[in-house]
Design a protein around this nucleic acid. Structure first.
Lengths: 237, 237
DNA sequence: TGCAGTTACTTGTTATAACAAACTACAGAT
DNA sequence: ATCTGTAGTTTGTTATAACAAGTAACTGCA
């Protein structure tokens, strides 16, 4: 079976000689990345069915790797199976969104605290760079760009904690929200006196885990309110 | 694609008329359960390779559903893929075991606190019954039995919180430890004045989330020390 | 016109064949 | 005896066919 990167954009592991090992990506992995990206970019709507043969035709692959990719996403809870076994983009109700939010607060809080203990200056600079793009994108009303940068900020920060299991949990939580992330700024952009990302970055510089944790939790609980409103409005009466 | 139960032993969802919906289990699901059980019963050793064709022959199935089952377990991080794409039972080093332990403390602590808020007396009675079997099994030196009852106690308690995403994370953490769980009592049985399970049950009765959380964390941190010793002893020098 | 039964079509699951890459065993050269 | 090259075998991945179950369309009857 094919090797599988921990994160989609992660380069191959360096071999002893300083070269990345050249890995041939399987068709199954390619299908997985395509579908996952479509989920994260909100190109797939909650409730949408992903039928095997039409999807395979669309991706230009045979059914086998596409089915494997779908089943993988089902295992990661990014997709569900209906009674017939068809992959469906899950609907996220209020209870589930709150659970996702609380688990993110817990887990990303923990990873951010850990990152504050061990982060190096280059990593922090990288975060600063990513964050700098967010207010820019928002000012230009490029909301999709802002959503992507926000996601990148969170996942790179999480990776800095070097807790791979926790990272996997966090990415799967993000993946669950992928189809509705585009609605984050539907009701407008939240006004912060100091953006929690900035507080996080300061706490990283100061090696202050508790301040980092608190700022992350604030970002998640308050910053995610747009999604909660969207889910409430989308709910059947 | 086949429907998939949330937990392996969970009965089908009741239909309106009070009957369980009869679901035909797919071969892929059957293979998954077989392999997962083998992992949880420590019948598969860390480092062991699971080759597709021999395993399919052993299970009496064709390669396709077996491959799907293996890939599903890889997605759940219960198995890994080596360079060739062969499924391997992962080795658990100290850092990973500590991460598992800390995440369990965090997540099971949270679910236990939640359960203390909402558990009903029948559920608590069920936990009491499960727990009662543990000291019995240990007294009779049936350690495998004790390990299974302990696992059941934890997972049923976690399910009582009615937080399905958290439950999925917790079961995947348990699955990671499956192959080494049998070593829990290698160095002897831990002596408690009051077993943390008993404290948990009391806290559930009293609807005291913080006491429940604390007892669960104690159980996990201190009760899991046998596994930590095993992993340290198994580590290459 | 509405309903029940039948037929045709679609869809997910599984089996099996084929292919490429990796591995193993063996023979020959040094 | 050791190393290299070659042939044979194994293994994971993919393609494709087949099957059973589900769905849609059509027909006949009240």
């Amino acid at each position: 079976m094919s090797s599988r990167p921990q994160a989609a954009e992660e380069p191959g592991e360096p071999s002893g000689a300083g070269f990345s090992r050249i890995t041939k990506e399987s068709l199954s992995d390619r299908a997985y990345l395509e579908i996952r990206t479509a989920l994260m970019r909100s190109r797939l709507r909650p409730g949408q069915k992903l039928q095997l043969r039409p999807l395979s035709a669309e991706l230009g692959l045979s059914a086998t790797p596409v089915r494997e990719a779908l089943l993988r996403l089902v295992s990661e809870q990014a997709l569900e199976l209906d009674e017939r076994g068809t992959a469906v983009v899950p609907r996220l109700d209020r209870a589930r969104l709150l659970e996702v939010r609380d688990l993110r607060a817990e887990l990303e809080g923990k990873s951010t605290a850990r990152a504050a203990e061990i982060a190096d200056p280059a990593e922090i600079a990288r975060l600063e760079e990513i964050h700098a793009g967010i207010p820019e994108a928002l000012a230009e009303e490029r909301f999709q760009r802002a959503v992507e940068l926000n996601e990148r900020f969170h996942l790179e920060l999480c990776a800095m904690a070097r807790l791979p299991i926790l990272y996997q949990f966090v990415t799967s939580l993000w993946l669950r929200c992928g189809p509705i992330l585009s609605h984050l700024y539907d009701d407008g952009v939240m006004e912060w006196d100091v953006h929690p990302h900035v507080r996080i970055i300061e706490a990283l510089h100061r090696r202050d885990p508790e301040a980092a944790r608190t700022a992350m939790r604030q970002d998640i609980i308050q910053g995610g309110s747009g999604l909660l409103r969207y889910v409430d409005e989308a709910a059947p009466s």
